[in-house]
Design a protein around this nucleic acid. Structure first.
Length: 561
DNA sequence: ATTCGCTGCCAC
DNA sequence: AAACGTGGCAGCGAAT
């Protein structure tokens, strides 16, 4: 059953049941004073009847947080904004406006209004009890529910006309399910022990300084660095550092760590230590803690589809760059545990599956794909790994390039697959992931032959785009595999017993999931993850020899995973 | 005082 | 060893 829902003022809203053809306004219509309550009722009803509701929303990120704060959890939806972005991208119009208002305007031959600029997570109520203000950009005359129903029907029609409608439907479903998961993770937050984090900082940097001042350890290092140079130098300033190195007879082209490592001067070890600690202090220090952690939880906003490849971005708190040392602060609540799962060697396995290279697929049937490749590289697993990564990233220099001929010899179809994607990119064409996510057109306007005398790309620009499209076909497919996994995990978790507390998905990072579950459910959660990984592989690739093993750790602290 | 490009480093 | 894909973010320093 499908139900379209829109929020209205005072927590009310309207629902429209959509028929199987989902084309019109023929289904039941409800106007409700309590949208959250009505949605919860229909969700429960659908679940009991064995026919779970697929909710049709204009924008999950606007409507779902307020539902969550009322305790409502949903299993499936269709997010018209996310799907519109995917469809526009497929049509070679990546990045065009994709809110409900924009989709509706295009459907009616009007000019699409630009998408509103997103607001930051910082300073916003963490648990909104009211629905977010409408950002759908519909003109005032249009009825939001009618527009949503109309756009949804149109999107279904457009999806049915694509080359692989089944695959794209899966993409639309998991992208939308991702939006549900993203809102749930923002709502639940990552368990975060501020006291542990503070102890890590104090151990590394010394006691917390007054606002704006350098922590003791950094201040001491800065003083000794100046002493070593015989002049006052701000180690945070690359310009001053370059000048200082020049003055002592060691000119450097940059102040990157790996450059400095090869300079023989007493300031260097101090500087390397300073850079490491300064990074910790500025990126994940006390002010980060004050800003992003409250009530024992770290919350960030996930941006579904925020990266061209379909990986998620985050806004706020640098959630996808939490350094290893800081992960000590991610500690399960008493009586609970973390279940951390990451897909090992995901991208080469994806390449094996999408390229149809039987030799690589056979290697990807084992737990260590690289080890199985080693035979082609004199038994050297590390060189095999470098070669395969170089093929996927388009590396052309260094040792890796020399290994490529051997890789090509052993796995010709796999190498052909990424080479072909690179050629398409260089020529300005579009490439797509397995499920149909499409890369942006080239900056130089490639696929548009009717433009008179378009400025051709520079060789460098063409090669850069070739590396991008080469990587896109792999990275974007890996990202959607992870989305399918997440959708399956969400579904599996709802089947677990909740007497001891509801198991939660609390963190998602490209190819890695972290669950926070009652200790008694740890083993069940592991089984849920394993089943979900099998399901993801089957849904995307059917019967394939390629395996997608998860490395799973049940731990109290994330740093132990 | 604010904005913006650049540098550099973190994650996958 | 240091040109190899996707990002976020802090601090600097110059421009506005």
């Amino acid at each position: 059953m499908r139900i379209a829902a829109v929020a209205e003022s005072e927590g009310g809203g309207r629902l429209r049941e959509l028929g199987e053809q989902a084309s019109g306004r023929d289904g039941a219509l409800w106007r409700v004073g309590d949208l959250a309550g009505a949605v919860a009722d229909h969700e429960a009803l659908g679940r009991r009847s064995g026919e779970p509701v697929r909710w049709v929303f204009a924008d999950t990120s606007q409507i779902y947080p307020a539902l969550l704060s009322r305790g409502v959890r949903l299993s499936r939806c269709h997010d018209s904004t996310l799907v519109e972005a995917l469809l526009m991208g497929y049509a070679g119009r990546f990045g065009e406006a994709h809110t409900l208002g924009a989709a509706w305007a295009r459907l009616h031959g009007r000019e699409a209004p630009p998408d509103p600029v997103p607001q930051s997570a910082e300073g916003r109520a963490p648990q909104p009890t009211l629905f977010e203000p409408d950002r759908s950009t519909l003109p005032s005359g249009a009825d939001a529910l009618d527009a949503l129903v109309e756009v949804y029907a149109d999107q279904r029609r457009r999806m049915a006309e694509l080359d692989h409608p089944g695959r794209f439907a899966l993409l639309a479903a998991v992208e939308s399910a991702g939006a549900l998961g993203a809102a749930e993770m923002a709502h639940d937050g990552v368990p975060w022990r501020a006291d542990v984090h503070d102890a890590v900082l104090t151990e590394q940097l010394g006691p917390r300084p007054t606002a704006g001042a350098r922590p003791p350890v950094l201040a001491d290092l800065a003083a000794r660095i100046s002493e070593a140079f015989g002049r006052t130098v701000n180690p945070d300033s690359p310009v001053q550092l370059m000048r200082a190195f020049e003055a002592v007879g060691h000119p450097v082209p940059s102040t990157r760590s790996w450059v400095l490592q090869r300079v023989d001067h007493p300031a260097v070890p101090l500087l390397l230590r300073y850079k490491e600690l300064a990074r910790l202090h500025s990126a994940h220090g006390w002010s980060w803690l004050d800003t992003w952690v409250s009530g024992g939880r770290f919350r960030t906003d996930y941006i579904v589809g925020g990266v061209v490849s379909g990986r998620w971005a985050t806004r706020g708190g640098g959630a996808l760059q939490v350094p290893k040392v800081v992960r000590r602060a991610v500690v399960a609540d008493p009586g609970w545990t973390l279940v951390c799962a990451d897909a090992g060697q995901l991208e080469p396995r994806i390449l094996a599956a999408v390229s149809g290279d039987s030799a690589l697929a056979a290697a990807a049937g084992s737990d260590d794909l690289y080890a199985r490749l080693a035979g082609s590289f004199g038994g050297d697993r590390q060189r095999a790994k470098i070669a395969l990564l170089a093929a996927m990233y388009g590396q052309t220099s260094g040792d890796a390039a020399a290994l490529l001929p051997r890789l090509r010899q052993a796995y010709p179809r796999a190498v052909d697959h990424v080479d072909a994607a690179a050629r398409e990119g260089e020529q300005g064409h579009l490439v797509r992931s397995w499920l149909g996510r499409t890369c942006p057109p080239p900056m130089w306007g490639g696929d548009d032959p009717d433009e008179g005398a378009p400025a051709g790309p520079s060789d460098r620009a063409a090669r850069e785009r070739g590396r991008f499209t080469r990587n896109f076909v792999v990275q974007a497919t890996a990202a959607e595999w992870a989305l399918v996994l997440m959708a399956a995990v969400r579904r599996g978790l709802t089947d677990l017993d909740t007497a001891a507390g509801r198991p939660q998905l609390v963190f998602f990072q490209h190819d890695e999931l972290v669950l926070h579950v009652p200790r008694t459910l740890a083993e069940a959660a592991v089984q849920t993850l394993r089943a979900a990984a099998d399901e993801a592989a089957a849904l995307m690739f059917g019967d394939t020899p390629v395996r997608f093993p998860l490395d799973i750790a049940v731990v109290d602290r994330y740093s132990d995973a």
